[in-house]
């Protein structure tokens, strides 16, 4: 059985997968693109050639591209390139952190539920139903109210401890409730998908074989079932990232998430969509960054899926 054989060559599986990934030109291109994007968002703004993202210039509103402003200016005359790059920091962070929270919760929860079966499964899945039907905004508002104070204390503590400037620390810890809230509610669909897959897998021969060999539940779950879930999970995850990044913008409009005048890709796209008739470029630029990043992410996801597919190893 594929999974059993792969277990004995644990290391070579990873190496094989990497080799397969590197052979996939689209996937490699995506990795390079994502790395460049991250670099641009996190490092480029440190150079003086990028204007401050919050510097308004009311005499040059919604200007088109020029030498001074490569991507033009927004509705308050702020440099668009700089806003898109700074916005990328927030959005990439939200995308990575919230998704990480969601995927970890969803996969483990779904696997355990599907593998355990019976009453445990029923109880766990009905809990998911309840959480799924809870009104998102209400939950987020109540949640952020209760977590706001601890986050503020945390910020104070970090500022005291490290001596960093408050301005640098505050945005990150101010966003913590958002990462947690989005992540904490984003895992539900994934949990359902994983649970169904696990249900199907646990009756398959290789799992039965593993069980008859006397392997522990833990190792069956994580060594035999998990690798077979990889494909679906990676595809669903890459699918969920845009939704997660955009949820942040919805939240920032009710005062959670990134605080104005700071931007994120989601808020930039929303602001652009409102000015569609007047200045379409305000929508187009952030949307291009956003879409390209997510396309790259999805192609990388496909590449990973193919590379790690235990079945394709035999091909």
């Amino acid at each position: 059985m594929s999974s059993v054989t792969s277990r004995s060559h644990g290391h070579s599986l990873l190496r094989d997968a990497l080799q397969r990934l590197l052979r996939n030109r689209v996937a490699t291109g995506s990795v390079v693109f994502l790395a460049l994007m991250a670099l641009a968002c996190f490092v480029l703004p440190l150079f003086p050639c990028i204007a401050s993202p919050n510097l308004t210039d009311l005499d040059h509103i919604a200007a088109t591209s020029s030498l001074q402003h490569w991507l033009g200016t927004d509705h308050l005359g702020r440099d668009m390139l700089s806003r898109v790059l700074y916005g990328g920091r927030i959005s990439l962070l939200v995308g990575v952190l919230s998704t990480a929270v969601a995927v970890m919760l969803g996969v483990v929860y779904g696997m355990v539920s599907g593998y355990a079966g019976g009453r445990t499964d029923a109880a766990m899945m009905r809990t998911v139903d309840v959480l799924f039907a809870l009104p998102f905004i209400v939950v987020v508002v109540v949640f952020s109210l209760s977590i706001e104070e601890p986050c503020r204390q945390m910020t104070d503590y970090v500022v005291q401890l490290t001596g960093w400037s408050r301005d640098a620390v505050a945005p990150l810890f101010g966003l913590a409730p958002v990462f947690l809230a989005i992540g904490a509610l984003g895992w539900l669909t994934l949990a359902r998908i994983v649970r169904t897959q696990t249900l199907a897998l646990r009756e398959q021969e290789f799992v039965l074989a593993a069980r008859s060999l006397g392997l522990s539940h833990f190792s069956i779950l994580f060594r035999h079932i998990a690798p077979n879930l990889f494909g679906t999970v990676i595809v669903y995850t890459t699918l969920a990232v845009p939704g997660i990044i955009l949820t942040e913008s919805t939240l920032s409009f009710i005062g959670l998430g990134v605080k104005a005048p700071n931007s994120s890709w989601g808020t930039l796209i929303k602001e652009g969509a409102d000015r569609l008739e007047v200045a379409p470029q305000l929508l187009v630029y952030p949307a291009i960054f956003f879409c390209l990043t997510l396309l790259a992410l999805n192609f990388l996801g496909d590449g990973l899926r193919d590379a790690f597919d235990p079945k394709s190893a035999k091909d």
Binding site: L239, P242, G243, L246, G266, I269, K270, G272, A273, L276, E277, L283, A287, F290, C291, L294, L295, N298, D302
Partner: peptide, 22 residues
């Protein structure tokens, strides 16, 4: 097909809706 699909996911409804309308 997959390019179209990913593009479809990336375009949020608050962008798609007004564009469709206009």
């Amino acid at each position: 097909l997959m390019f179209t699909a990913v593009a479809g996911i990336c375009i949020p409804s608050f962008v798609l809706a007004p564009i469709l309308g206009i």
